[in-house]
């Protein structure tokens, strides 16, 4: 039924709810940060997970790494359901799944030298002698384009881009097969972003890594990902290869998201028709019934707000080959194009 053997990672109906406590221990409700997410990743691919703040993309990444309690669902990693493992067993699996963090400043302990930072995972998994460890650290620093001579310096002596490289070196120390990158370039200056993105691409080729690339910036995601999943209010609304997603988005949210992104070209900007969404993101504690997007959906509005959008949550279904969308009227876009 599921081809878990072929997929490195398979996420099935993942739900992560955060309880809202109301004073005296009683629960008033829950923030449905991730609300039934399904996807799988093949070895060596990069899946981009995009969405705006509060859509649950980071929570999904952290749930996969078992960094926060999963409410329900299954996460198969290398064929093994992580949710059924004990804490200790999960710690053993951590060698194979690593994370690159967003903030290059808070992700490195200010009291650790670069070499100590990278040594931490090595020590946890008893890498070997002091000498072997030092060699490995030098090797990793070179791999991420840093001079190994800096190993004994402290993080505060480095720029954001360099710190991010150090974070990447740490995440690669144990030769993981899956790396979850949570907004790895959003805190960096534009001219430095490209350096880090290229580095990640090169490393992926070199070490045949599998990346789950979480970001809000669609231009960046499009660039680095082979497939992209778009999230809105805890659900994946569209998922396909990055080319199709940009060429022909099927979900109205994806359409709006794409059109909202400014392109550095004034002539093009003038010509583009921008879909400006009305209103704000609804609260994930109380998402709209039916399709979560129906309150802001321009397509539903254009069609006279059909009943089904308000009552029935659309399933994420294959609308054309390898192009999944969760919209009752996904064909509408295709027809308009055709």
């Amino acid at each position: 039924m599921n081809n878990t053997s072929e997929n490195l990672l398979e996420v099935q109906d993942l739900k992560v709810y955060f309880p809202i406590a109301s004073g005296i221990g009683t629960q008033r409700g829950a923030i449905k940060a991730v609300d039934g997410v399904n996807f799988s990743m093949k070895k060596g691919e990069t899946l981009g997970l995009v969405g705006e703040s509060g859509c649950g993309k980071s929570t999904t990444g952290r749930a996969i790494l078992q960094l926060l309690p999963v409410t329900s669902g299954k996460i198969f990693f290398q064929g093994e359901n992580l949710n059924s493992l004990s804490l200790n067993q999960i710690r053993q699996r951590r060698a194979n799944m690593q994370m690159i963090f967003q903030d290059p400043f808070s992700s490195l302990d200010p009291r650790y030298t670069i070499s100590q930072v990278i040594a931490e995972p090595l020590k946890n998994f008893r890498f070997g002698s002091q000498k072997a460890m030092q060699n490995r650290i030098s090797e990793l620093l070179e791999l991420v384009g840093m001079n190994p001579a800096y190993a004994n310096r402290f993080p505060h002596e480095f720029s954001g881009g360099q710190r991010q490289r150090i974070g990447i070196a740490r995440s690669l120390a144990l030769n993981p097969s899956l790396v979850i990158a949570d907004e790895p370039v959003s805190a960096l200056d534009v001219s430095v972003q490209a350096q880090v993105l290229n580095l990640m691409e090169d490393l992926q080729k070199k070490l045949s890594l599998t990346f789950l690339f979480i970001a809000h910036n669609l231009s960046v995601v499009r660039h680095i990902s082979s497939r992209v999943a778009v999230m809105y209010l805890g659900r994946i609304v569209e998922m396909t290869d990055s080319k199709s997603l940009y060429a022909m988005p099927l979900h109205p949210y994806t359409e709006a998201l794409l059109s909202a992104i400014p392109i550095p070209d004034p002539v093009l900007e003038l010509k583009r028709e921008r879909i400006v969404l009305k209103g704000d993101l609804p609260s994930p504690a109380n998402p709209p019934a039916g399709c979560h997007f129906h309150t802001r959906c321009p397509r539903a509005a254009a069609m006279g707000n059909p009943e089904i959008c308000r009552t029935e949550a659309p399933q994420l279904l294959e609308k054309s080959s390898n192009h999944l969308a969760a919209c009752h009227f996904a064909d509408y876009a295709a027809k308009k194009e055709g």
Binding site: A194, K243, P264
Partner: peptide
């Protein structure tokens, strides 16, 4: 150096 939405596929960034 900026990744653009309308980049061609597989274009390498020039940092």
């Amino acid at each position: 150096s900026i990744p653009r939405l309308d980049d061609e596929d597989g274009k390498r960034l020039e940092p």
